[in-house]
Amino acid sequence: MIINNVPMKGLTSEEYEKAIKISWKPQLQYAWDNGIGIGKYLASLKEGMILAAYCQKCGRIMLPARAFCEMCWRPTDRYVTVKDTGVVNTYAICHINWDASRLKPDEPRHIPAVIEIDGASQGQGILHILGNVEPSNVKIGMKVKAVWKPAAERTGSITDIRFFEPY
């Protein structure tokens, strides 16, 4: 049987405006615990260092630091401080906000990037943002370095690194 007709027509904008609607704004606030591995990672960021975890079974130095190796499925063996430099694996130039609203023309564009950190195993990247660089000058493979907040302003957050910039 060939399906030629399907049910539902959808509301036009006008019909939607006129329709009876019930509004709800959920009040859901969460406090997410740092846990063991990420807790160490964050404490290390506060000290101005990036912390990885080492698994002696697969030999990977993993980012971010974690309590267990998800590939070998065993506890990691020790933490390793890696460099605060890396290479851009990929990046985007974002012109919208989280709610799909548009950035104003004069607002700086967001440049999220996956950065493979030097000293970690190949491919071990983290998500961060790039700064001090014209969007049009960003390239995959570009070497970048963390720009840290002053020690007194660090709180043990990924944002203790303000951004990564070319070096």
């Binding site: 997410w32 990420i38 990672y41 906000n97 989280w98 967001h110 983290i126 998500l127 990924i158």
Partner: peptide, 9 residues
């Protein structure tokens, strides 16, 4: 913890 503070979309 490690990504949302960057305000991703």
């Amino acid at each position: 913890t490690t990504e949302q503070p960057l305000k991703p979309t």
